[in-house]
Design a protein around this nucleic acid. Structure first.
Length: 200
DNA sequence: TTCCGGATTACCT
DNA sequence: GGTAATCCGGAAA
């Protein structure tokens, strides 16, 4: 059962980023189903200079202004894609970036996708190389750009309620944000001591 | 029309 | 730890 849209609507963006930890991301495709626990997230707020929607609304960040519970997927560095869960109210551009997952089901399919889509000529992908970063998990889960703007409360790509809750949440600053652009904000969250996060 | 840089990754030293 | 790979939207002119 996927989490209903009301789950996303009743939480502010920072709370949602924390509440998504321990939840399960599921993608059902014709190739098979992949399932993984969300272990690392980052929040992007409308009054936050690191947020794509901070300056203005454009075709590129349009999906961030959708209602909470939709997806926002964008391309980065011309090669990779990042997957976000839209939060907050309609016309307010906020979202939660999913940064790392702990693979549970469909490991072989994830490995296959990473091998096919992965940049470079790496031969073997270990379990920890499958979803330990925003670009990697999009490849492993088989998420594509055209799924941006779709609801996570219904469809083939969805999130299930927490399967794990006996953990402590570590709060820190976000990755890849330049100085003076919100890099000091404590908007990154991950499951303490989880080996599948992208970086310490 | 041209130019610039990014919420990254993988490989090399 | 440094950096190439590689594309598109947005800003400048």
């Amino acid at each position: 059962m996927s989490l209903p849209q009301s789950f996303y609507q009743k939480l502010d963006t920072l709370s949602l980023a924390k509440e998504l930890l321990g939840c399960m991301l599921v993608h059902e495709t014709s190739e098979g189903t992949t399932t993984a626990i969300i272990v690392e997230t980052e929040a992007y707020l409308h009054d936050d200079p690191a947020c794509h929607a901070y300056w203005k609304r454009t075709p590129r960040n349009e999906d961030m202004f959708l209602p909470a519970g939709m997806s926002y997927i964008y391309q980065i560095y011309g090669i990779y894609f990042c997957f976000n869960v839209v939060s907050s109210k309609v016309d307010i551009g906020e979202a939660v970036l999913i940064r790392a997952l702990e693979p549970i089901q469909g490991i072989e399919l994830m490995t296959q996708r990473r091998t096919e889509m992965g940049v470079g000529k790496k031969k073997a992908y270990g379990l920890k190389d499958l979803c330990s970063g925003p670009g990697k998990l999009v490849q492993a889960m088989g998420i594509t750009k055209n799924q941006s703007g779709q609801s996570l409360a219904q469809g083939n790509l969805y999130i299930k309620r927490r399967v794990q809750s006996d953990f402590r949440t570590f709060t820190t600053t976000r990755i890849g944000i330049p100085e003076g652009k919100g890099n000091e904000l404590p908007y990154r969250f991950y499951i303490e001591n989880n080996p599948f996060i992208s970086k310490k």
